[in-house]
Amino acid sequence: MTTTLTLYPLSNYSFAVKEQQLEEDPSVVARLQRLENDYEQYGMRRTVEGIMLVHEHGHPHVLLLQVGQAFFKLPGDYLKPHESDEEGLKARMHLRLGPEPSTAEGVADNDMNGDGAESGGPHEWEVSDVIGHFWRPNFESFMYPYKPAHITKPKEIKTWQLIQLPESRVLTVPKNQKIVALPLFELYDNAVRYGPQLASLPALLSRVNFVYAS
């Protein structure tokens, strides 16, 4: 079934700054160790990430968070055991890109039009279709876009869901990160720079019907 998603111009969106959000784990080794500890207590981890798309010159661009010089990621995080994918993703999107609770100010120098509406609570994020799953079979870094046949107890499943952005919005970015809009042609077949998951995003989006709003 074809999914239809309306894309608005990148210039419709403004960007504010909030306090930095540090990574929960200082290294990959520490992250995998925590995953193993959590698995023993809660079972398979469920992670959700949101895919936000805009257009520039009639071409889809995906909004990614950039950490440091060369690490790019989609906004999201792992869920608590009782959370649903949709409600959990809304909460994570609000945590990553919503305003700080005590302020609705601080629009950054990269505000592109200065008139975006301030985003409210988690309920204001419109979650659309699931477009992909990635499975972590062991306590290792690599994830697969399928569950290997010999794996009966995967350690993590990551779900990608589309986010229907409103016509305009202020996205509030932690000051130790940046938000970048990458064209799909930059991601396509570019696993060397962006990793195999993000490089697969253009192919996964090929079933989506984009409507380019002005």
Rank of each mutant, 00 (worst) to 15 (best):
P148R: 13
L10Q: 11
S84H: 05
M143V: 13
S14C: 10
A213T: 01
V29W: 10
L89P: 03
P148T: 09
W160A: 01
G114K: 07
L10G: 04
W135T: 08
T2S: 14
I151K: 03
E86W: 05
L89A: 08
E83I: 05
H59T: 11
V208M: 06
L204V: 02
S128K: 15
M112G: 06
R136K: 13
R92D: 00
Q164L: 10
E100L: 13
F72A: 00
E167I: 03
N113I: 07
H123S: 14
E36A: 15
L201P: 00
H123R: 15
R207K: 14
E19D: 13
R46L: 12
L165C: 07
E56S: 12
A199W: 08
G132V: 04
T172I: 03
A149P: 00
T103S: 15
Y8F: 15
V29E: 15
I179T: 12
T47Q: 11
V28F: 03
E40Y: 11
P26M: 05
A191F: 09
T6N: 11
G43H: 11
P145G: 03
V28A: 13
T3L: 08
Y144M: 12
L198R: 07
D85V: 12
A191T: 08
A199P: 02
G98W: 04
Y144D: 00
A70Y: 10
P101V: 13
P99M: 10
L63Y: 11
S11F: 02
V62L: 07
K80T: 12
M93E: 08
G50W: 07
F139I: 01
H55T: 05
E140W: 06
E36Q: 15
Y146K: 05
L205H: 01
L7P: 03
D189M: 05
E83Q: 15
M112V: 07
H61K: 14
S27I: 06
R46N: 12
H82F: 13
Q20N: 09
S200V: 01
L187C: 04
E56K: 05
K178G: 01
E83Y: 09
V67M: 05
E126A: 13
L10E: 13
P148D: 02
D109E: 08
S128C: 03
Q164C: 09
P122V: 05
L162T: 03
M1R: 11
Q41R: 15
H82D: 14
S84E: 11
F134W: 15
D189Q: 13
P148S: 11
V28C: 03
S214L: 08
F71G: 00
K153R: 14
P145Y: 10
